[in-house]
Simulated scan of single mutants.
Amino acid sequence: MLDHRVLHSRTGTARRALLLTCGLAALGFVALLSLGLGSRSVPPGTVLQALLGTVHDRDALVITEMRLPRTVVGLVVGAALGLAGALLQGVTRNPLTSPTTLGINAGAGFAVVTAIYTLHLTQPIHYVWFAFAGATAAALFAQALARGAGDLDPVRLALGGTVLQLVLVSWTSALMLFSERTLDEARFWLAGSLAGRDLAVLTPVLPMLGIGASAGLLIMPALNTLALGDDAAHALGVPVARIRVTALVAVVLLAGSAVAVAGPISFIGLAAPHLVRLTVGTDHRWVLPGCLIAGPLLLLAADLAGRLLARPGEIEVGIITAFVGAPLLAVLARRATR
Rank of each mutant, 00 (worst) to 15 (best):
residue 301 A to E: 09
residue 208 M to D: 08
residue 289 P to L: 08
residue 316 E to H: 07
residue 42 V to H: 06
residue 299 L to W: 01
residue 68 L to V: 11
residue 133 A to S: 15
residue 235 A to G: 15
residue 205 V to W: 05
residue 66 M to N: 00
residue 164 L to W: 04
residue 225 T to I: 07
residue 128 V to Y: 04
residue 312 P to R: 11
residue 62 V to I: 15
residue 74 G to E: 10
residue 267 F to M: 09
residue 326 A to N: 06
residue 329 L to W: 10
residue 287 V to K: 04
residue 34 S to L: 02
residue 268 I to E: 04
residue 191 A to L: 14
residue 47 V to G: 05
residue 137 A to T: 13
residue 234 H to P: 03
residue 296 P to W: 08
residue 71 T to C: 02
residue 65 E to Q: 15
residue 11 T to N: 06
residue 91 V to R: 06
residue 48 L to M: 15
residue 281 G to D: 10
residue 323 F to C: 12
residue 329 L to H: 10
residue 293 I to Q: 01
residue 224 N to V: 05
residue 100 T to Y: 11
residue 5 R to L: 14
residue 170 S to R: 08
residue 118 T to H: 11
residue 271 A to W: 04
residue 65 E to W: 02
residue 66 M to F: 03
residue 110 F to Q: 09
residue 73 V to G: 01
residue 324 V to T: 11
residue 87 L to N: 06
residue 149 A to W: 13
residue 61 L to D: 13
residue 311 R to S: 03
residue 200 A to S: 14
residue 245 V to W: 14
residue 169 V to W: 05
residue 137 A to Y: 03
residue 319 I to M: 05
residue 134 G to A: 06
residue 143 Q to F: 14
residue 200 A to N: 14
residue 94 N to H: 07
residue 215 A to C: 10
residue 208 M to S: 09
residue 37 L to E: 08
residue 162 T to Q: 02
residue 7 L to P: 00
residue 83 L to K: 10
residue 53 G to D: 06
residue 70 R to Q: 08
residue 302 A to T: 06
residue 327 P to D: 09
residue 170 S to F: 04
residue 208 M to K: 03
residue 332 L to F: 10
residue 280 V to C: 03
residue 196 G to E: 13
residue 157 L to K: 05
residue 97 T to A: 15
residue 282 T to G: 15
residue 273 P to Y: 00
residue 69 P to A: 02
residue 154 P to T: 15
residue 123 Q to I: 00
residue 325 G to W: 02
residue 210 G to S: 14
residue 20 L to F: 08
residue 207 P to W: 01
residue 242 R to I: 04
residue 126 H to S: 15
residue 314 E to K: 10
residue 213 A to K: 03
residue 225 T to F: 02
residue 131 A to M: 11
